[in-house]
Simulated scan of single mutants.
Amino acid sequence: MKIVRRIIIAIVALGIIAGAVYYKYINTITYFNDAGTNGNTIGNLYGNGLFCETDGVVYFANPTDYNRIYKMNPDESDIEIVANDSVYFLNADSHYVYYSRQQNRDNSQFGFLNVNVNSLCRLNKRNKKVMILDEADCNACALAGNNIIYLRFDDELLTTNLNTVKIDGTEGQQLSKLAIDPRCVVGEKLYFSGVENDHNLHSMNIYSKDIAYASAFNLWMPIIEKSNLYFIDLDSKHRICKAALGSTDKTVLTSYPAQSYNIDGLYLYYQSMKGNPDGLYRVDMASGAEELIAEGQFNNINITSKYVYFADYFSGEIYHCPVRGNAVSKFDPPILPLDD
């Protein structure tokens, strides 16, 4: 019996050790993506990436709780707090959520020490552990395959430049000394409006750093969806236009100039500039019909499969409206405690 008991104890001990080793292993490995994986829609990232839908879950910066990261179902049920970080520019893949950490306002996980409060981060969906990908002050970011493309502030030179880092935190490097907007990523190619000599459309290979000329339109905030290019046209009094990618012909989509916009395939939402009145408008891209959704000054337009979200420009309060409806109300999620 003593021998059997010792064997059982040895087997249990080995099981515990094996479990501990496996647990340590799965918490150190990185799950890489298929080529061409992107982490959020281009339009949402132009709206500061406050909402990000992936695998039937919406991750969002809770406006009632210092923009801390929460998650919910697309119909806004089952709201949960995910981490104590205040976030924006949310991106996600099957295993991780990526974001730029905002300046936290109270006792976050880094407390009064104020350490890495504006860094680029990766959060593990399974165990909610946070990994810092870049400790520097980071801003707009986008997932491109297994790389994050992002704006990074250089404390020594006091300049902002375009950088990239792998999702495991390795191979960080500068892509450009210029502050090129990283948000229009299609697969693993970056499209951007020129920042030096023109406002035409350019593309960048994020591996070779080669830059190519993509379109002669004088544009801002390009969004590429399949073979279509959407943009604020600086030659059409800032109205939003659509063109086939590579074409020289364009179609004006909006009645008024736009300050910001987003698209969901069927509709275009935009904040008018010099509208009658100013407000958030919705355009049916099939029929061209245009309707006022909410009067006022709004920004940070984000779209999920169920709702369009937008922020009051002055108060920062978030409002929402069904993507196929027009009932506008304040988005007022609860403040929840974070489990230890």
Rank of each mutant, 00 (worst) to 15 (best):
I3F: 07
R6F: 08
I7D: 01
I7W: 09
I9M: 12
A13S: 12
G15P: 04
Y22T: 12
Y23A: 13
K24N: 15
I26Q: 13
N27G: 10
I29K: 15
I29G: 05
N33S: 05
N33T: 09
D34Y: 10
T41W: 05
I42H: 05
G43L: 01
N48I: 02
G49T: 11
F51M: 11
E53S: 06
D55W: 02
D55N: 14
G56V: 10
V57M: 13
Y59T: 09
Y59Q: 02
Y66T: 07
Y66K: 14
R68E: 13
I69D: 03
K71P: 00
P74R: 05
N91P: 01
A92V: 10
H95S: 12
Y98S: 09
Y98E: 06
S100G: 13
Q102H: 10
N107Q: 11
S108M: 02
Q109I: 12
Q109P: 00
F112A: 14
V115Y: 14
N118A: 08
N118G: 13
S119E: 01
R122Q: 11
R126W: 11
K128I: 00
L133Y: 06
L133S: 06
A136W: 00
N139H: 14
C141G: 01
C141P: 01
A142L: 01
A144R: 11
N147P: 00
F153Y: 14
D155I: 08
E156S: 13
E156D: 15
T159K: 14
T160C: 06
N163T: 09
T164W: 00
V165M: 07
K166Q: 13
K166T: 13
I167P: 08
S176N: 11
K177W: 06
A179I: 00
A179S: 15
C184M: 06
V186D: 07
S193D: 07
S193P: 01
V195N: 11
E196W: 05
N197K: 14
N197M: 06
H199I: 00
N200R: 14
N205E: 10
Y207V: 10
Y207H: 13
Y207K: 11
K209G: 00
A212Y: 11
Y213T: 07
A214E: 15
S215A: 14
W220G: 06
W220E: 14
I223P: 08
I223N: 07
I224K: 10
K226M: 03
K226P: 00
S227D: 15
Y230N: 08
Y230V: 04
I232Y: 09
D235L: 07
C241V: 01
C241L: 00
K242A: 12
A243M: 00
T251I: 02
T251H: 07
Y256E: 02
I263M: 03
Y270C: 07
K274Q: 13
D278G: 04
G279P: 04
G279W: 04
G279H: 05
L280H: 04
R282V: 12
S287P: 03
S287V: 02
E291R: 06
L292G: 08
L292D: 09
A294K: 02
A294E: 09
Q297A: 14
N300T: 09
S305C: 08
Y307L: 04
D312F: 04
Y313S: 10
S315V: 02
E317Y: 09
E317S: 12
Y319E: 01
H320S: 09
N326I: 05
K330R: 15
P334M: 04
P334H: 10
P334I: 03
I335F: 00
I335V: 15
